[in-house]
Design a protein around this nucleic acid. Structure first.
Length: 550
DNA sequence: ACCGAAATAT
DNA sequence: CATATTTCGG
């Protein structure tokens, strides 16, 4: 007799609360309703999208609940695919309980069929399907001791008692894995989610979501939990996020440090630009701040948007530390004890892009909606460029010129946005140079207008890129200021611009493909010409940074 | 419970 | 070595 509150046993993702459910329904209303009832679920209104999600993460969900009729694909069809490809329990639902349909559902492999006014009652025990499946699996694989005890029975409560062993001891536990000895074997049939713990890879869009979330919440207020919620990625765990956050912070502080150093060196030039202060100090202007740089070879660039609505006081406290002048990062806990010895610098290419779209004033929130957000990323694995080319702009140039826009990028895009079966970092790598070079397309067929510019910075060891970092660094300015003609860039974007490619993924995924430029003089950076002459909307521009060489 | 740091693992 | 997971103390 366990009560449902118990459900939320954290460790194991126990039932209703932890069950990772994918709900598919073309009717948003239902999605909303179910959303309220289920804690950890993902929703989508297109069957194809659902498939996509499912394929992306083979083990990301425990169960699928799908509506029967949907515009893009018949619910049964979806059911079929799921059954074929991943064998997840699928529950069908529809308003009418017409026998034929139910029958059909069952025939196609649905494990349950719910009639539409769905209530908690119905949902409460859906975990049994997951559980049941688990049991079968275990049996098949090998009979473990102690398992035999399971005979599933009807409704919930007492079952749940058994269930606990699914989930490991909930409330009453003091479980500490103090035993050092369990090094091997350890079959641990405990959790519902297969074995070990899949090592997740932070793909670009995953990271993008992460950043978005971080931006939405204030920098100071961030916490793994919150981020997790905002990201709404079902299979992700708090730990995952925490870990990533940790890395992220580390990265930022390193960055920050680097920056400071540089500033001390040079700083002055056209530094006065208000921007710096503007956002660091008072979030008043919701200008966005971009931090980016290249740190060591793996470059990683994030933009941080500080503009959270409320706030201002966010960094009210403290203030002394270093963070002040420059960073948007409120942290300044002075925590870095990291003895990181000056990162070696890498040459890197960066592009900044301004696709003027949103209005600035619409504070941040925009971020939540796919199209308008400011994000960037770039992980070491960002596509092209990553190749080994160590120097030589020349080479670069060639490559770039030939980067087949449609070709390569498409390819990449596909990899990211589409249902690639599994993402691994290596994919990216392999998609490379050779292929790229092989094709010969010019970038010119570009669709977008010349608002973009790119810049590449090669910092041999010199300081340049600082400026880049500044928010007001408007691409546009750059554009005017310099002969851009020779810049070429290729970039791609998943959605807002809706290029012909038609590849837009689902929601807010945008993917910018880094572009590159032949040779970019760095004097670009110094060029006085672009100061913050006029402010465009900072709301968005993308910055891409990539480590040129490894 | 939740977070962040540090220890581990891959 | 970098990145992800786990452990552990606050």
């Amino acid at each position: 007799m366990v009560v449902e509150t118990n459900f939320s046993s954290p460790r194991t993702d126990a039932f209703p609360a932890g069950l990772r459910v994918l709900v598919v329904d073309d009717d948003p209303t239902w999605l909303k309703i179910l959303e309220k009832m289920l804690k950890k679920l993902t929703t989508c209104c297109l069957a194809r999208e659902a498939l996509k999600l499912l394929r992306e993460r083979k083990n990301g969900y425990d169960i699928v609940i799908s509506d029967v009729n949907m515009p893009d694909m018949d619910g049964f069809k979806l059911l079929e695919h799921v059954g074929l490809e991943m064998d997840l329990p699928v529950i069908m639902m529809s308003v009418d309980g017409e026998t034929r349909r139910v029958m059909k559902g069952v025939q196609h492999g649905a494990c349950d069929y719910l009639l539409k006014p769905i209530r908690m009652k119905e949902l409460r025990n859906i975990w049994q399907h997951v559980f049941r499946k688990k049991i079968h699996e275990v049996r098949d694989i090998e009979s473990l001791e102690g398992i035999e005890s399971i005979h599933m029975t009807r409704s919930g409560s007492e079952l749940f008692d058994d269930g606990h062993f699914l989930g490991g001891g909930d409330t009453t536990l003091g479980r500490k894995r103090k035993d050092a000895d369990n090094k091997h074997d350890d079959k641990d049939l405990g959790d519902p989610s297969s074995t070990k713990k899949a090592r997740i890879v932070w793909t670009i869009d995953l990271h993008q979501k992460f950043v978005e979330a971080v931006n939405q919440i204030g920098f100071d207020k961030v916490g793994p939990k919150k981020i997790l919620n905002l990201m709404n990625v079902p299979w992700l765990t708090r730990e995952n996020v925490a870990s990533h956050l940790q890395k992220y912070r580390l990265y930022l502080s390193r960055l920050q440090k680097e920056r400071d150093v540089k500033n001390s060196f040079i700083g002055i030039k056209h530094s006065d630009p208000s921007l710096k202060d503007s956002n660091s100090g008072s979030g008043l202007h919701n200008s966005m701040n971009v931090i980016q740089d290249n740190v060591s070879n793996g470059s990683f660039s994030f933009s941080v948007n500080n503009s959270c609505v409320p706030n201002v006081d966010l960094k009210g406290r403290e203030g002394d530390g270093k963070g002040i002048s420059s960073g948007p990062m409120a942290e300044s806990k002075g925590t870095f004890s990291i003895g990181i010895p000056d990162p070696r610098k890498a040459k890197s290419l960066q592009i900044s892009f301004d696709h003027s779209l949103g209005s600035v004033d619409s504070v941040v929130n925009l971020a939540s909606f796919g199209s308008t957000d400011t994000v960037q990323y770039s992980w070491n694995e960002v596509p092209q460029i990553q190749f080994k080319q160590e120097y030589e702009p020349l080479q670069l140039e060639n490559r770039i010129n030939q980067l087949p826009l449609p070709g390569l990028q498409h390819d990449l895009l596909t990899k990211y946005l589409q249902p690639a079966i599994s993402y691994r970092s290596d994919h990216i790598k392999h998609s490379s140079p050779t292929e790229a070079v092989g094709e010969s397309h010019t970038l010119n067929d570009q669709v977008f207008e010349p608002i973009c510019t790119t810049t590449s910075s090669m910092k041999g060891q010199d300081i340049i890129p600082n400026h880049l970092t500044e928010p007001e660094f408007s691409p546009r300015n750059l554009y005017d200021g310099v002969g851009v003609e020779d810049l070429q860039l290729c970039w791609l974007q998943g959605d807002c611009y809706a290029t012909n490619s038609g590849l837009q993924g689902f929601d807010c995924t945008e993917y910018n493909n880094p572009a590159t430029i032949p040779e970019m003089p760095f004097h670009l950076y110094d060029a006085p010409s672009f100061d913050h002459e006029h402010l465009f909307d900072p709301t968005e521009y993308y910055v891409i940074d990539q480590g040129l060489f490894a």
